[in-house]
């Protein structure tokens, strides 16, 4: 499964970066969104993927039954998903504010606002 996911994640990265290199700020947002999803999948995949063995311990037992999926990358990705949402919201609102001030959706026209 991992090679297939690797291909898919590579493609996701390529689309994300292509969108982030566009001058239109709306496309930048879409690129950011694609990138955060791709990064989460990257962490999840490199740790190895396991079918049907969630890291849960059955009631009344002290150890999980058999091999379970690695819980650590899952915990990392879980917070990453929520934070990515927070950061995305921040970026989106920032871009909206920038658009209101500059009145242009072309990033090249915003280049003087930060110098």
């Amino acid at each position: 499964m991992e090679p297939l996911m690797a291909l898919a994640i590579g493609l996701l990265y390529a689309t994300a970066i292509f969108m982030m290199l566009r001058r239109s700020i709306v496309k930048l947002v879409i690129g950011l969104l694609l990138l955060s999803n791709a990064a989460n999948l990257l962490i999840f995949t490199t740790a190895g993927m396991t079918r049907g063995a969630p890291p849960l311990i059955p009631e009344g037992m002290l150890q999980p039954v058999g091999e379970v999926a690695d819980p650590l990358p899952q915990a990392v990705v879980l917070t990453a998903i929520v934070i990515a949402f927070g950061v995305l919201a921040f970026a989106v609102v920032l871009i909206r504010r920038a658009y209101e001030v500059v009145k242009a959706d072309d990033l090249d026209k915003m280049k003087d606002t930060d110098t």
Partner: peptide
Amino acid sequence: VLFSAPDL
């Protein structure tokens, strides 16, 4: 979900 991460 398919790869054992229900929480995710």
